[in-house]
């Protein structure tokens, strides 16, 4: 059976769901952040597949923008995590309960 659009989409969906699972279950801020990157990558794969099988390049340009913005986002997010660690000496979400009633 020839590999088509559906195959790529299924891989992308499963990767996205793994990312969701990681965000929901892991307790370490850095690992949660990596799961977010996994979800972004899954979306990128879907966009590139759509672009290939529709015969126009707009999807790939969009992936390019997603990668750029993700790089900026990672830099800011990690700086926030480092600043948080300086104040609280922890990177576990369980210990960050200031806003809990």
């Amino acid at each position: 059976m020839n590999v088509g659009l559906a195959h790529y989409l299924v891989v992308s969906i499963i990767l996205f769901c793994l990312g969701v699972l990681g965000v929901m279950t892991r307790r370490n801020l850095l690992v949660i952040y990596m799961s977010l990157e996994l979800m972004l990558n899954a979306a990128n794969l879907a966009l590139a597949a759509f672009s290939r099988f529709n015969g126009n390049l707009d999807g790939q340009v969009f992936v390019f923008f997603v990668i750029t913005v993700a790089a900026a986002e990672v830099a800011v997010g990690l700086a926030l995590i480092v600043a948080l660690y300086r104040h609280r000496q922890t990177a576990q979400v369980d210990d960050l309960t200031t806003m809990k009633l």
């Binding site: 850095l30 952040y33 990128n44 590139a48 672009s51 290939r52 990668i67 990672v74 660690y85 990177a91």
Partner: peptide, 29 residues
């Protein structure tokens, strides 16, 4: 998928820059 440029950018930016940043912060903390 014949997205050669994206593949190069993926390796350079993601596997290179972003993940080095991640590892750097893990080591820093």
């Amino acid at each position: 998928l014949h997205a050669f440029f994206l593949a190069a950018v993926q390796v350079l930016v993601y596997a290179g820059a972003v993940m080095v940043l991640f590892l750097f912060v893990i080591m820093l903390l």
